[in-house]
Design a protein around this nucleic acid. Structure first.
Length: 319
DNA sequence: CACGATGTTCCCTG
DNA sequence: CCAGGGAACATCGT
């Protein structure tokens, strides 16, 4: 579920329920894969994190693309005291939940924060998500929040930056380019399709051929990001009950997975194929690339061989 | 039973 | 060395 708007939705859900409260107890599912690598940035890993959280105050939170963070200060803020930062990436199936009353942890609850008046839960069955943690002087930022690219709603995210990026990845399909977090932080599979659909660009079009259309693509990225934030995360307004409660029927989103789905704009059938390694949906009637479409259709008809990969080595990682 | 899923990272190849 | 493609990761729902 997690692209930038859902990420903001979940951050707000935790923040509005729990900000300002003390962590009475923290529980971690230490064997969850979301803690992979944590010990390298936080001594003692997941269990040490649970101990460090207890007694702290949930003070602040923020997002950057698909990354979000929560800041925990010491209960009685002393001068020069270290703040504890917890980063959360939701991966493919992660969710942030708010529970009340005596909450019994469920399967795949990677992190459970028992606060004064509610319980905050990070649940992730598939465990592609990730938890970061870092202890540092207040006013400083953890390493994973430094040197981040501009978010797509910031002025620094310019049409020129998009044009340069398209030119630099000239041979990659537009779909693959939009998924690059180093330039389009927070854009994921459905937003990429939504953007290309609104811009009227074919997802398999090589980026180099779209460089001259960078303005249009840039505008669509902005527009989809702003609309999604408003509709999904209720930016500036109340938080919707579910992240997809208010998505308009006029978006591609609601039609993309339905078999026999039709373009909400043209009424013509939608097409689906794997492009840039990801399931992709587009409206052929709306997203044409003259001269190019033909090539793509040809490529499409080629028998897609999938060899039953012979698994060989897998170097075990050390330290 | 088999396939595929709103993500990232590593490995392989050209 | 670089860019791009594909598999792996782990689980659940259709």
């Amino acid at each position: 579920m997690p692209e930038l708007a859902e990420v903001e939705f979940f951050r707000r859900r935790w923040h509005e329920a729990g900000a300002g409260q003390i962590v009475r107890a923290a529980r971690v599912l230490a064997r969850s894969r979301v803690y992979r690598g944590l010990a390298r940035e936080f001594r003692g890993g997941a269990n040490a994190l649970a101990r460090a959280l207890a007694g702290r105050r949930f003070a602040e939170s923020g997002t950057h693309g698909k990354q979000m963070w929560f800041g925990f200060t010491e209960r009685n803020a002393k001068r020069g005291a270290d703040a504890l930062w917890v980063g959360v990436h939701l991966g493919m199936t992660g969710e942030l939940l708010v529970e009340h009353g005596g909450y019994a942890p469920a399967k795949y609850d990677a992190l459970v924060l028992e606060l004064e008046r509610c319980t905050l839960v990070f649940n992730d069955p598939r465990q592609f998500g990730r938890v970061h943690a870092w202890l540092g002087p207040e006013g400083t930022r953890p390493p994973w929040l430094r040197d981040l690219p501009p978010v797509v709603t910031a002025p620094e995210f310019s049409a020129e930056a998009v044009r340069d990026y398209l030119a630099r990845h000239a041979r990659a399909p537009l779909k693959a380019v939009l998924l690059q977090q180093e330039r389009f932080p927070g854009i994921g599979n459905w937003m990429a399709d939504e953007i290309l659909w609104r811009a009227g660009l074919h997802p398999a079009l090589p980026a180099g051929r779209a460089a001259r259309l960078a303005n249009r693509l840039h505008a669509a990225v902005r527009e989809v990001a702003e609309d999604a934030l408003r509709v999904i995360a209720g930016a500036g307004g109340p938080l919707p009950p579910d992240h997809n409660a208010n998505i308009p029927d006029t978006w591609l989103f609601l039609h993309r997975w339905r078999d026999g789905g039709r373009c909400p704009h043209t009424g013509r059938p939608l097409r689906r194929a794997v492009i840039g390694g990801r399931a992709t949906c587009w409206s052929p009637a709306r997203q044409r690339a003259p001269r190019f479409t033909k090539e793509f259709e040809q490529k499409e008809t080629k028998p897609t061989k999938k060899h039953p990969k012979s698994k060989t080595h897998r170097s075990s990682q050390s330290t």
